[in-house]
């Protein structure tokens, strides 16, 4: 059983190999986390998965179910972003990127846009189909706002929301496209401990909405708490993969985070 698999994924920017021959699998119903020091290539992986960057080599395979419930591998390598969204991948950004001058509700509605099926041309004229869709979409958007705890802020401008709520809104917007796989790039960045704790429960609860979550995070406590599997990147390459307790004790990981000295100190201390 697999949800998404990344095979020998590599991307070069000129001389820099930002992601180097990366392999990992995401399983359904699980939170897979991607960690690593600054510049390790984590965001670049999300950018490749969602079609913002085209990999230099390697494959991204999404597993879909056919009518009989069999797994069918679909190659989404190098697909454009709009196709990837239709196939069921949706992301948030490391630096919040909301539609700042639009209301929270409109942000969600934009997230739903690929499911709203009246042609753009029909927007030119009032018609029953459009009215029906808009009404339904609004009701659903309110539901999504409730899920992320923003029902009171529906008509507030995105920028006027406090920081923690902006993060939640961005997750809500990603959920609005009904993704199979949700990709969260440092959702806890800039939050205080109380907010982080609340967020980690919230992320866990999202597994009821989506089939799998790929999480990038620097906060080790949060990562160890909620991950089912952790993939550790350093200089673009995977140095370790496993359950939280396995990764925690891996020497290469400690070395990547703390440097060689850190390992020695750890050893002497241990």
């Amino acid at each position: 059983m697999s949800l998404l698999s990344v095979k020998n994924l590599t991307i070069r920017f000129g001389g820099l190999v930002a992601v180097d021959n990366l392999n990992f699998e995401m399983e359904p119903g699980k939170i897979t986390s991607l960690i690593g020091p600054n510049g390790a290539g984590k965001t670049t992986v999300i950018n490749m998965l969602t079609g913002f960057y085209t990999p230099t080599s390697g494959k991204i395979i999404l597993y879909e179910k056919d009518g009989k419930g069999n797994e069918v591998p679909v190659d989404i390598t190098g697909n454009s972003t709009d196709l990837v969204v239709k196939k069921g991948l949706s992301r948030t950004f490391q630096n919040i990127r909301l539609f700042s001058n639009m209301t929270a509700l409109d942000n969600i509605l934009v997230g739903m846009q690929h499911r709203i099926e009246y042609g753009s041309f029909l927007s030119l004229f009032p018609n029953a189909q459009k009215n029906k869709w808009e009404k339904q979409a609004r009701e659903e958007a309110i539901e999504i706002l409730k899920k992320v705890g923003l029902e009171d802020a529906a008509y507030e401008r995105a920028t006027s929301l406090p920081y923690g709520k902006q993060r939640k809104l961005e997750i809500g917007r990603a959920l609005a496209s009904h993704p199979k796989v949700l990709l969260l790039d440092e959702p806890a960045a800039g939050m205080n401990p109380a907010e982080k704790k609340e967020l980690s429960q919230f992320i866990r609860s999202l597994l009821n909405e989506v089939e799998g979550i790929l999480l990038i995070e620097h906060d080790m406590k949060l990562i160890m708490d909620i991950s089912d599997k952790i993939v550790v990147l350093n200089h673009g390459a995977k140095i370790c993969e496993g359950k939280p307790e396995e990764v925690q004790t891996n020497e290469e990981v400690i070395e990547a985070y703390l440097g060689k000295k850190g390992v020695q100190r750890n050893v002497t201390a241990g």
Partner: peptide, 8 residues
């Protein structure tokens, strides 16, 4: 960029 990420 965010608009693209939403499939626009």
């Amino acid at each position: 960029i965010a608009a693209e990420a939403m499939g626009i």
